Simulated scan of single mutants.
Amino acid sequence: MSLFNKVFASIGIGSATVDTKLEKDVFVPGEEVRGIVQIKGGKIDQHIDDIYLNLHTNYIKESDDKKHIVKGDIERFRLIQAITIGANETKEIPFVIRVPFDTPISIGRTKVWVETGLDIKNAVDPSDKDYINVVPNQLMKGVLDTVAELGFRLREADCEELPYRKRRRLPFAQEFEFVAVSGSFRGKLDELEVIFFPQSDEQMDLALQIDRKARGLGGFLAEALEMDETNISLSIHSKDLPILKSKLESLIRQYS
């Protein structure tokens, strides 16, 4: 075994490579992801301590009064431990993982990807990145469609860091900001903010922030003191879909 090959492999030249192949690239939260991790050996035998898949997205984090975009971990899956890949050898490892229910959907600037990594001691760890398209499940689609029917248009959808008191499993959540462009809420609200906290295919918690439009001196003072915002939490079930429009309309009207 050449000393030069060992040195080159330690800095990633002539080292093992990894390529993940997914059966498809469109998923709903909670769905299984099936695929194969293909590892190709380099110029020397290499011991791999760990093979893992990470599900990532980016989110906005604020520090020192500045906003930064950082990589967020949605879930980490360990596939296999401690194998050796021979020089020029090819190994394929099939896998089945599940997209967590709280995975953000692929909309606007929000991207979701699977990153495959090999943990190789004393060497540059090879990795592979595969973007996937996460689409709303039945409950999410029901909420988004209902909000649109009430006259709201989606203005922005970003993943943002949450205050500690609002966090669930992840330190961030996807926030949907809507503006009323038609219907009875036009001119009454500055915006409607919606955050999904899915529990399963059938149940989801919603966090709503209703931001009323300032009217008169009292309204402008309330806006300046951020007293014009109302935060509401509610749970919905798939059985609520037929009455979801009247339920959300009544709730928003109560605080607008």
Rank of each mutant, 00 (worst) to 15 (best):
V112H: 03
T17V: 10
R253C: 06
V181W: 07
R76M: 11
A16K: 05
I51P: 01
L118R: 02
S127F: 08
Y131C: 05
S250H: 12
T103Q: 03
L154A: 06
E23R: 12
F197P: 03
G183H: 04
F220E: 13
Q203R: 15
K121I: 12
G35I: 05
A222R: 15
M227K: 15
M1P: 07
I85S: 05
S182N: 10
K66Q: 14
R169L: 13
E229F: 00
Q209N: 14
L139W: 01
E149M: 14
E149I: 13
S127I: 07
S238A: 11
A87N: 04
G151E: 06
P242N: 04
N122R: 13
S184L: 10
K188H: 09
E75N: 12
K129S: 05
W113Y: 11
E177N: 13
D64G: 02
R186Q: 14
T57F: 00
E92L: 04
S250A: 12
G72K: 00
V124H: 01
N88T: 07
D145T: 13
I232W: 03
F196D: 05
N137T: 05
Q38N: 15
G14K: 05
T57P: 02
R153K: 15
S127C: 08
G108S: 08
D64P: 06
S15I: 03
A82Y: 13
S63N: 09
L241A: 05
L251F: 09
M1H: 10
K67I: 08
G42C: 07
T57A: 07
L53H: 01
K21M: 11
L192K: 01
K213Y: 14
D128V: 00
L208R: 08
G30F: 08
Q254K: 15
I120M: 07
P242K: 00
R169C: 05
S182L: 10
V114I: 15
N133K: 15
H237W: 12
E75Q: 14
K121V: 13
P171T: 09
V7H: 05
S2E: 11
D201F: 14
N88E: 12
L22W: 06
G219R: 08
G35F: 06
I39Q: 00
G72Q: 07
E62M: 13
E202N: 15
D128W: 01
E223N: 14
A180F: 06
P94T: 04
I107M: 07
D19G: 03
S15K: 02
P136E: 06
D145S: 14
R167C: 02
N231L: 13
D65H: 13
D240M: 02
G14E: 05
L170V: 03
Y52M: 10
Q81H: 12
L144Y: 03
F95N: 06
F178S: 02
E161H: 08
